[in-house]
Amino acid sequence: MAKKTYDLLFKLLLIGDSGVGKTCILFRFSDNHFTTTFISTIGIDFKIKTVELRGKKIKLQIWDTAGQERFHTITTSYYRGAMGIMLVYDITNEKTFDDIVKWLRNIDEHANEDVEKMILGNKCDMEEKRVVSKERGEAIAREHGIRFMETSAKANINIDRAFSELAEAILDKTAGRDADADHARIAVERRPSRAPPARACCS
């Protein structure tokens, strides 16, 4: 058998209003760069990063979603498979913070019950434009029993930490499930390249 490149696979999802910096957060985490020249995300985007936690190699499969309402049917279909969800708002934009409640409701409706959640107040480098205090962010997180952090993709504040904490929380839960994850992966790899006839003839 080929050497394992990872021990566990975690699926994460980034959600939040348009323009709060979801793509920038992900880009900072996966490529350690920041750029303002991002086009808007249409539908859903995807990145992979492997991290090491407690001696385990964990492959993070991270889905970046479009913020606008129109894309919700497309994006909510990803909620179900997600093990961790990062809910992002922009500390310089009141509405994106108000909408947190809406996003939480979305998670309740579409995600697994035991999904790990985290709220991120992004753009915390822009102190002079801040309109949402850190205390308010903490308060809403506490109210819903969710982790909270202020981040800046631009200044690289708390980005790695946010992802590791979320991954660690999932790891705590999944500790006993290694075998299952492994099994699923091998099963996929061992499938013949042609689909079984039953699949081929259905339409």
Partner: peptide, 13 residues
């Protein structure tokens, strides 16, 4: 507001 966000990131290349 939504339009403004998007036109400011149109074809940045």
């Amino acid at each position: 507001l939504q339009i403004d966000k998007d036109v400011r990131r149109l074809c940045p290349e």
